[in-house]
Design a protein around this nucleic acid. Structure first.
Lengths: 172, 172
DNA sequence: TAATTATAGTTTTATTTGAAACTAAAATCT
DNA sequence: AGATTTTAGTTTCAAATAAAACTATAATTA
């Protein structure tokens, strides 16, 4: 394959047989999981966000808020931060814009004046009624070349990586 | 084949008998590949970029440029754009900053005054000499819970998705 | 109960980024 | 050859974002 890529150490640099100098390090980004994962995710995200954006004028943050609300009915901004792992400022802005467009509404908690319960409005549900099937259809097309087993394994492997990430992050 | 993947579109909600109100759409983001992939990639990228950033004051764009140069010795900015799929402005800035720090150097092509050949300086190689092993070690830890087969399958599946993405993108 | 600390959410500030405009050089066309 | 278009790379501009400061409430503690 990419056999000859390996070669070309620190070769022609002149200091010739210098012992102290470290061998030329090399990294094939295409074999490097973080890079591969990131660029794949990026491409997918961009392709999909074209749907959100062009057809519904929704950005990714807004889409995530809506999607979680479709799933959980009532949530606070804090919870959305946790679930989506988005920054609270980003969530705050998404919520604000969705409320302005009356796709969601907020009701202040009586027991704690700081928290606001978020829920979809009818308009929000209607929008999701169109958007979700489209998103699903797109995903289906994307994964249409995978077998059911491959798809399942992919999600499983991703879960494993997530758990390991959890461990690594808690260590530091 | 990809049987059960198909399902759960706008399926069970049956616009059936109820005429006026649309059935409540629902999406479980945790089962939605684009979301899962994106948040996993994001977390990995962030964790890893802490290494680049804290220990070497390198951002992700710069890291990618360096990594490709470790791999290919001499590249133009254009090529780096293609390989990394990064915006040319972003590449331009990364190159600029790396050159200022003398981690890479540029030599103008004699045959075409517009292009500049980029290559690592000795300092750049030295930095990579430390950074690459660390990045590799981190990746190894990350995937340490996967079997060799799982890891291979993951990369394969990702390649499939990339190819499909290519197809989908060329269609539109 | 008063003072301190923590929490939910917003706003401000600075940075990052992509898109578009731009520059200079090359390639193509007439 | 001169005019037009393309290309490589940079700079400018506007939008998105994260981090930090901030506001208002609630919880803790002394």
């Amino acid at each position: 394959m990419d056999s000859d890529v390996q070669r070309h150490a620190a070769s022609d640099k002149g200091e010739a047989d210098d012992h102290s100098r470290p061998a030329k390090p090399e990294l094939d980004l295409n074999q490097f999981l973080p890079y591969r994962l990131n660029s794949l995710a990026d491409r997918i995200s961009q392709a999909l966000s074209r749907i959100y954006d062009q057809r519904f004028a929704i950005n990714v943050a807004e889409w995530r808020v809506l999607a979680w609300l479709s799933h959980r009915d009532v949530l606070t901004a804090k919870q959305i931060c946790e679930f989506t792992r988005m920054d609270k400022a980003r969530v705050s802005r998404a919520v604000q814009s969705l409320e302005e467009r009356e796709l969601i509404s907020r009701t202040q908690s009586t027991s704690d004046q700081r928290v606001h319960y978020l829920h979809l409005t009818l308009a929000g549900e209607e929008l999701l009624g169109k958007l979700i099937p489209e998103a699903h259809a797109w995903e289906t097309e994307l994964v249409s070349t995978l077998t059911a087993g491959e798809y399942r394994d992919l999600l499983n492997t991703m879960s494993k990586l997530e758990r390991q990430l959890e461990r690594l992050e808690s260590q530091r």
